[in-house]
Design a protein around this nucleic acid. Structure first.
Length: 571
RNA sequence: GGGCCCGUAGCUCAACGGUCAGAGCAGACCGCUCAUAACGGUUUGGUUGCAGGUUCGAAUCCUGCCGGGCCUACCA
């Protein structure tokens, strides 16, 4: 039995994520986790909220909560939405956990021992009124290049020129508007990624089957300009993991915390510890997933993320893992996604443009969203959500092709034979052909799911559903029944077994509908090893029920209504 | 400025050097009547962004141009 460690990029704690965020990491990760479990493999599927950093502090200040309280509350909100979308995490952790504090400090200590951490003094803008150092983007002023008066300290949004905060004319704090700013000297730790450049480069070069998106971004960072740059891993903030060298204090680093991009990936490991704690398991139980000296040798580790996260996962985190000199499990496959756009533009959190996770579930159940998002996952390029496309796909694929199939076959059987599988009849050439077709399709489906080709796998699954309709149409049990009820019984029995098979195969994409189909057929059973056997799993006499319609259709009125409701400014 | 990705039927996408460039949806026609007016079959539709080049052969490789998107290291 294979063992799969699967992680999704950590959603930032600040606010509710939109569908673009969902389809870029958590949803495909869940698809893969469900599939691997379905195949009978051992899976540990982890995710967590990423809770540190300036935006979290500011969001908490805005609501008047303490940062810790704000994060705890938002973690609850996000966990509930994850549940709503049926994301099957084995554990949904928090980067602010005690586990992560300890591990982050541990890694910093090991990296320091290995000579991979450097102390650097730098000059940063301090706001007296806010009582804090300001990240570049939180300083606003007039652009020296184009005169735009709301340029940010990192870049002018108007003329796109890259800036240094000290370039700005009349700089002010974007938080308070205060102009009482000064440049202060402050000391920070830098991770010497540059020292690992050769090793990282060899490692990336060896990954010939990774998505181009993943390797091209990694190579760009490795080779651009002067090559991979060292990066600061600490910040002058209150909220975060205090800078320590293992258990020991770090002289000169008092009052500073590690920066999110350093501590967030380490939470992938810490989340396994949190999982063990929550399950009442011991250290060995999570270490067998993460320590190659404790049994993780045979683990296959797959990460899912949007393209914006690729540099941290191909360079930063591997530097932490490799540089520690300890036998931690390194990622085997990085699946990255492009962005999902919304109706001709981008999803926008600030403008409330597009559909957010909470709103999506208010409008329709999870399966509708899961199916559309996964069958249109932005794998080869950015893709686009439109309500017309959503309505068409959902109505056709889910309601007509799959839902109606389950409906027609169960209702026909009930009316002609009652609510048990009828007896009699034997397979003919048509049934043999169906078995052969489904055998080939199943093999393709498995191959695509193994390769995490999400859209193609969805198309193949749809083909498997459609094969049921094709069979029924050509077998026509409603006609057969008139002269040859035994043959009709065989055809209907096969049809009902198809519903059961669909429950098993569809579960990774649409878990709720799959559960309904399984319930109606008295249970789903295991992943099919052999199609012919799977199609006779339900024997004559087995009871079944006619399920409620699996999917309803989206009307034109609803589509129009939602289209205007989500055009901007959420409310 | 630099880099990367993309541009294929009305729409969403496949094909990544080799039989007439495919599929789903939409459209048209036919069939079926078990079913959520659902299903099945047939079919219309493309000088593969443009212009050159390499090759026996190019959507696929190269060059240039046009158009769209992303990244560029202190947003995570």
């Amino acid at each position: 039995m294979a063992r799969h460690l699967i992680t999704s990029a950590l959603p930032y704690i600040n606010g509710i994520k939109h569908l673009g965020n969902l389809v870029g990491s958590q949803l495909p990760a869940d698809l893969y986790a469900r599939y691997q479990r379905g195949r009978g493999n051992e899976v540990l599927f982890l995710c967590a909220t990423d809770e540190h950093g300036t935006p979290a502090e500011l969001a908490a200040a805005k609501t008047g909560e303490a940062v810790a309280d704000y994060c705890a509350r938002m973690h609850g909100v996000q966990a509930e939405l994850a549940e709503g979308f049926r994301l099957s995490f084995d554990h949904y952790g928090r980067s602010s956990s005690a586990r992560n504090h300890q591990l982050t400090q541990h890694f910093a200590g090991k990296l320091a021992e290995a000579g991979l951490i450097e102390e650097v003094s730098e000059r940063q803008v301090y706001s007296n009124a806010d009582g804090r150092f300001l990240p570049d983007r939180y300083i606003e002023g007039t652009c020296p290049n184009c005169g735009y008066d709301r340029a940010r300290g990192d870049q002018c949004e108007n003329c796109t020129k890259q800036l240094d905060p000290t370039d700005l004319i009349d700089p002010r704090s974007a938080i308070s508007g205060s102009t009482d700013l000064e440049v202060r000297e402050t000391k920070h730790l830098f991770l010497k990624q540059s020292a690992m450049r050769g090793q990282l480069n060899d490692w990336i070069d060896a990954q010939t089957d990774w998505p181009i998106l993943t390797t091209s971004i990694a190579k760009k960072w490795l080779n651009d300009g002067d090559g991979l740059q060292d990066r600061g891993i600490t910040r002058d903030l209150d909220w975060g993991v205090p800078v320590k060298r293992g258990d020991a204090d770090w002289p000169g680093m008092e009052g500073k915390v590690f920066y999110v991009w350093f501590d967030a990936p380490i939470e992938y490991i810490a989340a396994a510890g949190e999982w063990a704690d929550a399950k009442g398991l011991g250290e060995a139980d999570w270490q067998r997933w993460w320590r190659t000296d404790e049994g993780a040798d045979d683990v296959r580790y797959t990460q899912f993320m949007g393209k914006d996260n690729v540099p941290f996962h191909t360079l930063g985190f591997p530097t932490t893992i490799m540089g520690s000199g300890e036998p931690w499990k390194l990622v085997d496959y990085i699946k990255s996604f492009n962005y999902l756009n919304y109706d001709g533009g981008q999803f926008s959190t600030s403008q409330g443009r597009g559909v957010f996770m909470d709103q999506a579930l208010e409008v329709l159940p999870a399966d509708y969203w899961r199916w559309w998002l996964l069958s249109h996952a932005p794998e080869s390029g950015d893709s686009e959500f439109t309500w017309e496309n959503f309505q068409q796909s959902v109505n056709k694929d889910l309601a007509d092709v799959l839902g109606n199939f389950a409906s027609r076959v169960t209702k026909f059987c009930r009316s002609k034979f009652g609510e048990t599988l009828p007896e009699g009849g034997a397979y003919g050439p048509r049934e043999e052909a169906l078995v052969a077709d489904l055998t080939a399709r199943l093999a393709r489906y498995e191959q695509l799911m193994d390769a995490i080709e999400v859209r193609k796998a969805a198309a193949e699954l749809r083909g498997i559903w459609a094969a049921g309709n094709e069979y029924l149409q050509s077998a026509a049990p409603w006609s057969t029944f008139k002269e040859d009820p035994e043959t009709a019984a065989m055809q209907v029995r096969l049809g009902l077994n198809l519903v059961r098979l669909y429950a098993v195969l569809s579960q990774p994409f649409i878990p709720d509908a799959a559960a309904k189909m399984a319930d109606a057929m008295g249970g789903a059973g295991a992943w099919p090893e052999d199609v012919a056997a799977a199609l006779s799993a339900l024997a004559p006499g087995a009871p079944f029920t006619v399920p409620e319609n699996l999917f309803r259709k989206i009307t034109d009125e609803e589509r129009a209504d939602w289209q205007s409701r989500f055009a901007g400014r959420r409310g």
